[in-house]
Write a protein that binds this DNA or RNA. Structure first.
Length: 292
DNA sequence: GATAATGTTCGATC
DNA sequence: AGATCGAACATTAT
């Protein structure tokens, strides 16, 4: 990190921020900045990021006023007047933020001109994200597979125990499966399991009652803490639309392969493995396998 | 050039 | 009905 005042700060838009705390941060920012604004014009530059017909998408939003912004897991739900709902999922590289009267940034995939002259920009380098307009949440393709929100609708101990059930699937893979609980992604899954001392490969059915209790509490703690830090930003970018997050400084295992475990009294070394095609980070010393 | 990246969906194969 | 795995989507950074 550079020291304040030394080098000129680069103004670069921050990289994508896809898990629950990052989306919640965007939700709060956008609520502050665009609530009550009317969308006067919609331009779709990359039709594949829109679910359904891009022209229908654009005309459904034109003339609508933004009245509330909600979130379910990693999905942003922008409610407009006339029962119009804009559902957004950023996947890996999506971003949504207002800009002034200036040229659109690179990788702008959709642009919503607001009634105050600003433009709400959807950027997405990889074009993996999706935008969708529906009249009712139940119609949403983006929302249809999502389970309970990890923060606002967290399961009770009994409920999580029931969800884990007799599954043989690894607990880390379960946490990434958004059909059960939605909002926890690859960073926070590793962090939660490390804090609970649970091995990421542990089959769900082996978890004890104490493990279940720890998972629920730690999930709340980690997500809340991360929201308090405005999420995790990997890279030291500065942004023109909001500050970067700071939770990266609190990460204990994510991207720390080969480093000493930070748990007090633990002499282990953080390992990286791959589960379901995604990197998992854990400490073999303090995340021991349960006896079968 | 190879590899990995905070995500989801779909189809094939158990 | 499940689970499970790989591929696909597509670009950037290291």
């Amino acid at each position: 990190m550079s020291c304040a005042g030394d080098k000129p700060r680069r103004i670069v838009v921050i990289p994508p921020m896809p898990e629950l705390p990052e989306i919640e941060t965007v939700r709060r920012d956008l609520t502050d900045r665009i609530l009550g604004r009317k969308i006067v014009r919609v331009e779709v530059l990359a039709p594949q990021i829109v679910e359904g017909d891009a022209d229908a998408f654009a005309s459904a939003l034109a003339g609508r006023t933004i009245i509330r912004i909600d979130r379910l897991g990693k999905a942003l739900i922008i409610c407009l007047d006339g029962a119009v709902i804009l559902v957004c999922h950023f996947r890996m590289t999506g971003q949504l933020y207002p800009v002034g009267e200036e040229p659109l940034p690179s990788h702008t995939r959709a642009a919503f001109t607001l009634d105050d002259g600003r433009t709400l920009v959807y950027r997405d380098a990889r074009r993996l994200g999706r935008l969708e307009v529906v009249g009712d949440r139940a119609q949403s393709v983006i929302l249809r597979n999502l389970g309970r929100d990890a923060l606002e609708d967290s399961p009770s101990e009994d409920e999580l125990a029931a969800l884990l059930g007799k599954r043989r699937t690894a607990i880390k893979v379960f946490l990434l499966d958004q059909r059960h609980i939605t909002g926890v992604g690859n960073i926070y899954a590793s962090e939660i399991l490390h804090r609970c001392g649970i091995h990421p490969e542990e089959p769900c059915l082996n978890l004890t009652r104490a493990d279940v209790r720890c998972l629920i509490g730690t999930m709340q703690d980690v997500l809340s803490e991360a929201i308090g830090e405005r999420g995790t930003t990997i890279s030291d970018y500065v942004t023109g639309w909001g500050r970067v997050g700071d939770f990266q400084y609190r990460l204990r295992v994510y991207r720390r392969a080969g480093e000493a475990c930070v748990r007090e009294g633990c002499r282990g070394t953080v390992q990286r493995t791959v589960q379901a095609g995604r990197s998992t980070y854990y400490c073999p010393q303090c995340q021991e396998r349960r006896r079968t």
